[in-house]
């Protein structure tokens, strides 16, 4: 038991898990367990927010390797508009459009990776300029929100398999499985080393630029898939929908416990961070609904809901500091213990 607790406390996702469980408990209390855990509710929560979860994961990968990309948000929109416009205006089959959508995101990510790793432009600025470029591309491809997808696609996306398993959760599971595979390869070690300290990684023989390029490419694929999920979810195209996600994903990763300076974290951190954002939004809107039903004459505008959820996120960010401190404390204790000749995991 003690060992389990220790392992939990030193895992990178400790911060994210604690915050996530807190907000989950609050959500369950507000919505009552029966309603919250109903298949329809879970399905709508996952299906509606899958794009955000996926791009948070790609952001998490990038942050682990020591870079940041705000343009993940607009890349989702890029994938969305390409997937809609290629079948609509060129008359090609849908799968061609969807492949092109993913290819487009990979191309943008690759260009972004090139200018940050090989041209060595400071990463914050390069991704900010890329936001401009991709935003312009989106509107160039699709001037205003339009388009549609065949019903079979969005019906499949919204369906619940076997009565409890949302289809969208399968996509999420696929990405997580990919990470589980990746984590066991040498590439993951190189990724963490590059994120942790670029020069040390370089001098130990890792081609750091190539590692970062690969991470950008993987992130591009995930962003493309997120855009396709967005297309299936909204069943139409919107060139400007994704921009707000850009900075949100960075906040989500920090909430989940991924270090901004790189080299620390796993994809489950990103998952918890994204779920935390989603459940906060969900919980706050449910709470206000509940209050307006319970207290006659209580009515607030949407603005108050947004304010409350953003305030909670700010507080959660401050809370991460304390959980981080607890985690670092136990890691240090373990290190001291090992230095004295003790055995692993018995501190």
């Amino acid at each position: 038991m003690k060992r389990l607790l220790y392992r939990l406390k030193t895992a990178p996702y400790f911060t994210g898990l604690i915050l996530f469980l807190t907000i989950l408990a609050l959500n369950v209390v507000i919505q009552t367990p029966a309603r919250f855990f109903s298949a329809a509710n879970i399905n709508s929560l996952v299906a509606k927010n899958l794009p955000l979860i996926l791009i948070t994961m790609s952001q998490g990968l990038l942050m682990m390797s020591g870079v940041i990309d705000f343009s993940v948000g607009v890349q989702v929109s890029l994938s969305n508009v390409i997937a809609i416009m290629i079948p609509q205006s060129l008359g090609l089959p849908i799968w061609v459009g969807w492949l092109c959508a993913v290819a487009g995101c990979v191309a943008v990510s690759a260009f972004n990776g090139f200018i940050t790793t090989y041209l060595r432009i400071p990463v914050l600025l390069s991704c900010y300029s890329m936001v401009f470029v991709v935003k312009g591309l989106n509107v160039l491809i699709m001037p205003k929100p339009q388009g549609s997808v065949p019903p079979v696609i969005y019906k499949t996306y919204d369906s619940v398999l076997l009565g409890f398993l949302p289809f969208s959760a399968l996509i999420l599971a696929a990405v997580l499985l990919f990470w589980l595979y990746l984590k066991r390869t040498a590439f993951a070690k190189a990724l963490y080393a590059t994120g942790g300290n670029l020069r040390h990684a370089y001098s130990s023989g890792i081609n750091t630029s190539a590692v970062r390029m690969k991470v950008y490419l993987i992130a591009g694929v995930i962003n493309g898939i997120a855009g396709l999920c967005m297309t299936a979810m909204t069943a139409s195209g919107d060139p400007n929908a994704g921009e707000v996600y850009g900075l949100k994903t960075v906040a989500a990763c920090i909430l989940g416990g991924i270090s901004m300076s790189g080299g620390w974290g796993t994809l489950s951190c990103a998952l918890y961070g994204a779920l935390l954002l989603i459940l906060t939004q969900n919980g706050v809107s449910n709470l206000f609904n509940f209050l307006s039903r319970a207290i006659p004459g209580f009515s607030v505008t949407n603005y108050w809901q947004n304010f409350a959820s953003d305030l909670i996120i700010l507080l959660a960010l401050i809370l991460t500091v304390f959980t981080n401190k607890a985690m670092m404390g136990s890691i240090k204790k373990q290190a001291d213990y090992l230095a004295l000749g003790g055995k692993r995991n018995e501190a």
Partner: peptide, 27 residues
């Protein structure tokens, strides 16, 4: 058009930064 403006703006910023605001090489 607004969207082309955005694209040009982004590319120009990248170009300017490449000229004189590059990080140090890892070597």
């Amino acid at each position: 058009r607004d969207c082309v403006q955005n694209i040009i703006m982004g590319l120009v910023i990248i170009g300017v930064l490449t000229l004189y605001n590059r990080d140090k090489s890892v070597r």
